[in-house]
Each structure stands twice: as structure tokens, then as C-alpha cells.
Amino acid sequence: MPLALRFTSASQLPLELDGILPERVQALSQGAIEKLLIRHGNRLEPLAEHFAISGSIDDGTLIFESAMPSGHGIGTGMTAGVIRVVGHAGRRIGAQMRGGRIEVEGSAGDLLGQGMSGGRIAVTGDAGDHVAGPLPGSRRGMTGGVITIAGSVGAFAAAGMRRGLVAIGQSAGAGLGYRMIAGTLVVQGPCAPNPGLEMKRGSIVLLDRAIELAPTFRKAGAFRPVFLRLLARELASLNATIDIRAFGMPLDLFHGDLLTLGKGEIWTRAGALASETQA
């Protein structure tokens, strides 16, 4: 049976939920869980003041029930177990996560998987800006793990990404894969112009039919590499909402960003670039 936390508070002020992790509450009695302190604005308050708590965590699953866009930092630093969030939730979900699984049945705010190094996050709705991005002051975004988002994402998704996999089922905003260092990023829908600016290495697969790349990406040809077939298989096993049939056809490969190292790869559907001559 999972441990369920139902959001009962009327407060809109930021509620910091870091520290409410399956591995932490596992060892605690219901009374002790109720007394766990969370930050509400500038005060520390017991969890029970904002949540009705029921069930137990025998199966390692923690459920946040009901929408709470003001609840931030869910699953911060998580290493094991499962967190399910039913409804929209706030920022920094899965920040610095190292293991375990977070399932968001709804949309997530900004900074999803910020500084994440392992584990798995799945979102059925949209996510805000800076998915898989770096912690403030750091250049490195996500360094491991998997994020799948069925909906759209805001700006700077996978910026500074170092390793891992991010799959986006719909559209992506500006700054996609900006300064990407390595890792794999797949976007099913439209993406704002100039993805992958200053990327060093890594692979970005863009499946929309109209893509605009900066002049510092150069076409290498059309290919059907083994790695894309393996990626398709992985995406299928993750239930990512990506049309993997596209991976069966040759995709155009562009190398860039030549201003940085130029070892990055952007894969697009054949002819998705307005100018086939980009060289």
C-alpha cells in the first residue's frame, strides 16, 4: 500500500517539499511523518498542516494527491522508491535526483530534473522551462537518468545536458539543447528556431517536418545508424510518446555547433530543413 499525501492547504505561497522522500519516510511512524518540517514561505511547519496523510509506504511508493502548483522540490535528491504526483505540481521536481522513479500525472513546473544524475521521471502533461538544466551557478545540466514528457516543454530544455536521455512528445521552446555537452534528446513536435546552439557533443533528434538550424550546423548526409534503432527500441520500452517509425527511414545528419567543438549531431527527417544546401 502506498503512502498518500493529500494537499489540503489553501495557501498559494511556496511550499518546499524537498526531504519528503520514500527512503526517508520508510523508517518513520505516521506520527513522525506528520511532524516532518517543510518550509512554507519563510517558516518551517509540520507536514500535517498542509497534507492529509494516509496509508503506509510498504511498497516504497509515495503519492502526492491533488494539484499543487505551489509545491516545489518534490523528489529532490531522491535515490530510491517511487513518487507519484497526481495533478499539476510546481518547480524543481526531481532536482538532483540520483535514483528511483517519479511519475507526474499532470504538468510539471520549471526546472524539472534540474541537476539530475540518475533515475527516471515521466510526465503525462507539459513541463516548464529548463527541463534537465543545471543548478544555478553550474554549467552542467542533467548528468544521467531518463526524462520523458508526453506534452510540450518551455525554454532551455536540456541546456547544458551532460548525459542521459530526454524525450519530449510535443513541442519545445527556445534554447533547446543550448550548450549541450553530451547525452540524447528527442523532440517529436515543432521546436523553436536554432536548437543546439553551442552544443559540443550529444545527439538531438528532431522529428518535426520544419526545422531551422543556425548557419554553424553542416549537413553530413542521410543515414540509418544502428544507434538510432537502439534508441527507438529504448523509447518504445519507456512508453515515450515518440513516433519511432521515423527511425526506420534514413534521417539527415547535421554536425555542429561548429563554433564550439562541432562534435554534436542533430538528426532531422529528410528534407526538414528549408535549405537542403546547408553546408
Partner: peptide
């Protein structure tokens, strides 16, 4: 603006552009 800045940066860095 971004395409333009990337163009100028590339020229100054000595890259050939189409």
C-alpha cells in the same frame, strides 16, 4: 538576431559558411 550573431562569430572564427 541569433542567426546574425552566429554568422559574425563564425566568420571571425574563420569558418566557411554557405
Amino acid at each position: 538576431r541569433l542567426a546574425a550573431l552566429w554568422t559574425v562569430r563564425a566568420i571571425v572564427a574563420g569558418l566557411s559558411l554557405d
